[in-house]
Design a protein around this nucleic acid. Structure first.
Lengths: 100, 100
DNA sequence: TTAATATATGAATATATGTTCATATATGAA
DNA sequence: TTCATATATGAACATATATTCATATATTAA
């Protein structure tokens, strides 16, 4: 079975999805969430970022379904959306660690 | 073994690597090269892009090691760098095709 | 209700990036 | 060498994007 080239709409969706991994702040958030579910304030504190910066980036991560969230009390707790996210992080790390 | 959070330099390298997948033109080039090795002119023709656009993007893809190339005569032939590239494309496609 | 805490949103700004045009470099043919 | 073909590069411009500041919304406690 020959691999096929995705149609235009898939290319756009895929580029938006993968582009979301292309920012240091978002990556830091994702690596934190790989360890455990966290609230917005905890993410901001651990990464030494402003709350508003974190909220803006979480909105992007939510929209592209890299994370999911649940509300509890006044807090909102975020975690990685599914295993694809961690797989991409792992493959990416393998790639950049390759020498030559 | 607990997963660790990459250090600053790794985060930067990883974000630059993954960012490279975040553009429709580069994705189209990668999907073409997933099928077969191709020269610059052939890529431009198949994707209906200007040669100079393709060259600029190939430079990015080379720099981040998503593709490799070999020179033959006056041509330069490009192919995917290693299996990581196809893996990321495949996982990404799986993700965007998930409904819900 | 009022106050306090947690999170989200909108506008503004500075920076990054993709494409185009013009042109340079490289290789092979004549 | 000169010409033609293949590819790469640099500058310019328009668009996209990350962060900040100010503020809004939501929830709980008093």
């Amino acid at each position: 079975m020959e691999p096929t080239i995705p149609v235009e709409e898939e290319i756009i969706d895929l580029s938006e999805f993968l582009k979301t991994f292309g920012d240091p702040t978002r990556l830091r958030i994702l690596f934190l969430l790989r360890e455990r579910e966290l609230g917005v304030h905890a993410i901001a504190e651990q990464l030494e970022l402003q709350q508003t910066t974190v909220s803006h980036q979480l909105k992007v991560l939510r929209y592209l379904r890299l994370v999911r969230y649940r509300k509890e009390g006044r807090g909102v707790f975020y975690s990685l959306s599914d295993d694809h996210i961690e797989q991409i992080l792992n493959i990416g790390m393998e790639h950049i660690q390759e020498q030559i």
